[in-house]
């Protein structure tokens, strides 16, 4: 998996850092870098003044100069906005339709603990059900005061295997939702895909 490499002049010389990418193991083979590192990777190949590195998404950059040593520390951001906005862009890039993004954004901001798993379930659905049209929205139960995220898979034709396929994807992620505030239901509303 990609790893960020930042190289260049020492920061206190107000130099520039070149962002490049190498195919090296990140944390674990199946892991992808967190969103804020992905955001830095978008600038690979670019030269960036060291003063502006924090603007690329890392919360803080500290640079320490010793005997020939420069050190840069990048900390995971402490705001939720960036994480939720990036997740929504990632979901939309998979072709998932979000008809009311303001509502989904507000829900994920409030229940940010399920942001990662929402991206994962959308990713699995997108990969394993390429024939389906996917929609993400906030579902409000009119009978009880409850709301949750609903990811719908819509098909041109429905047969008996549809729910089995959906349940198989649900099973793969259900544990990741346990103990979290907020909920995501992956299902179908049996509407025809457009």
């Amino acid at each position: 998996m990609p790893q960020v490499r930042v190289q260049g002049e020492a920061p206190q010389e107000r130099g520039s850092w070149e962002v490049s990418q190498e195919m090296l193991p990140f944390a674990q083979e199946e892991d992808k870098p967190p969103f804020w590192i992905q955001r830095i990777l978008q600038f690979r190949g670019s030269k960036i003044p060291s003063d502006l590195l924090p603007n690329l998404g890392a919360e803080i950059v500290t640079a320490v100069e010793g005997e020939g040593i420069s050190r840069v520390s990048l900390h995971e951001p402490i705001d939720l906005t960036g994480e939720v906005q990036n997740a929504m862009v990632e979901i939309q890039n998979m072709g998932v339709r979000i008809t009311k993004p303001n509502e989904v954004f507000d829900y994920l901001l409030r229940f940010s603990g399920i942001t990662d798993v929402t991206v994962e379930i959308a990713g699995s659905a997108h990969q394993r059900l390429p024939e389906a049209q996917l929609l993400l929205e906030v579902y409000r139960d009119p009978e009880v005061e409850d709301e949750y995220l609903a990811l719908y898979a819509r098909f041109r034709e429905y047969d008996e295997s549809v729910m089995d396929k959906i349940k198989a994807i649900r099973r793969g992620h259900s544990e990741r939702l346990v103990g979290k505030e907020g909920w995501l239901l992956f299902t179908t509303d049996f509407q025809p895909a457009e």
């Binding site: 960020v4 020492a10 944390a27 020939g68 520390s73 603990g113």
Partner: peptide
Amino acid sequence: REQRLMQDMEISRTQEGLQQQV
């Protein structure tokens, strides 16, 4: 209460070259 795991990254430039630590 909730708990989350966070990743921090450190990139050091030493005489041996660049070192990265997550």
